[in-house]
Simulated scan of single mutants.
Amino acid sequence: MRTIQKIHKAEYRPIDDLITYSPMPTKELQMIDPFLFLNHHGPQTFGPNNNGLPFGPHPHRGMETVTFILQGEIAHKDSSGHQSVIYSGGVQWMTAGSGLIHAEISPEDFKKFGGDLEILQLWINLPEKLKMTPPKYKGLQEDQIPKISLDEGKVSAQVISGNFEGTEGAFETLTEIHLSTVYFKETGKLLLQVPKEHNIFFYMVKGELMVNEKSAKALHLLEFDNDDENVQIEAIADSILIFGHAAAFNEPVVSRGPFVMNSMDEINEAYDDFQSGKMGSWNL
């Protein structure tokens, strides 16, 4: 079985009235190459006449964002002309590439009437050769994403990208990123095989799992060594897991705010390009 190097507890980092936990980056764990950053918002219930999500227009360059909408809904708009509202169970994949401005906010109905909300956003790096690729965006609703059933229905997986147990994911990606949301009922079991050269992204959203004979609880991220292919999982309670794996890029990573590049000169160039309008303009 693959060795678990460390189990990291997500830090509590509220944003205004939005409950937020983040297991990465922290002082202990900067990244799991090429996975850069994770914010876990909620779960919480918003009352009527709320302000919704606080993520108004802001730029990105050099990376990708994957947004998991477990509960609630999120409206996306960007300077490349993409717009969508994605609901519970859906996923958004945005390639910032050479740069764009986008907003992730709550639709008017949610702000007016309120509701339950739980959303996770994962940042994934782009290699140097793809940093300046043209931006793109795709949002899919729950019924547009393949879901498979395992262990007599006690385990199910929403296959987002790459391949999970023989099923291809819904999103075509620029790099070989495998991502799935895995749902366990108590006593559900799963044995996964991941190439040894791939780094594993393993974040516990909810519940408790035994993973390679160690307990993993909600709001914890597991850091693995690259010494074996096998990951053995058994559910102690009903659980939700964000599971991914990919080969490391092994490139310099310099990040400042919303930009992730390979050098400080490229970061400075990104800020200059944003301020001069090269990432597009924002029309409310």
Rank of each mutant, 00 (worst) to 15 (best):
F201M: 13
L219K: 15
M210D: 12
V231K: 00
L191F: 09
D238Q: 10
E223W: 08
N199H: 13
K185A: 12
I240P: 01
K189Y: 00
L209E: 13
S180K: 05
E186A: 13
V205P: 02
K185M: 09
N230C: 05
D225R: 09
M204K: 05
Q193F: 13
S180E: 07
Q232G: 01
G207Y: 07
K214V: 08
I233Y: 03
V194Y: 07
M204Q: 09
S180F: 07
T175I: 14
V194M: 10
I177M: 10
T187L: 15
N226M: 10
K206D: 14
F224M: 05
A170P: 00
T175V: 15
Q193G: 08
V231M: 04
H198I: 05
Y183H: 08
D228L: 03
T187Q: 15
P195C: 08
L190R: 13
A170Y: 00
L191R: 15
A218F: 08
L209P: 13
D238G: 10
E229C: 03
I240T: 14
Q193T: 13
Y183E: 02
Q232M: 04
K206E: 15
E213Y: 07
L191S: 15
K217S: 11
F171D: 00
S215R: 12
T175P: 04
K185I: 05
E176V: 03
A218Y: 10
F201R: 09
T173K: 12
V231P: 02
D225W: 02
L219Y: 14
G207P: 07
H178N: 15
F202Y: 13
V205Y: 05
V194A: 06
L174F: 15
Y183W: 05
F171M: 01
A218E: 15
Q232I: 07
L241I: 01
E229Y: 03
L221Y: 06
E186Q: 13
Y203G: 04
L190N: 11
D227W: 08
E172Y: 04
L222N: 06
V182M: 04
S180P: 02
Q193Y: 12
E223C: 05
L192H: 12
E197F: 07
L192N: 12
V205W: 09
E234L: 06
L190E: 12
L192G: 11
E197W: 07
F202E: 01
K185L: 12
E172M: 05
L219I: 11
L219N: 15
L209N: 11
L209D: 13
V205R: 03
A235I: 00
L179H: 02
N226S: 11
F224L: 06
D227S: 11
F201I: 10
A216S: 13
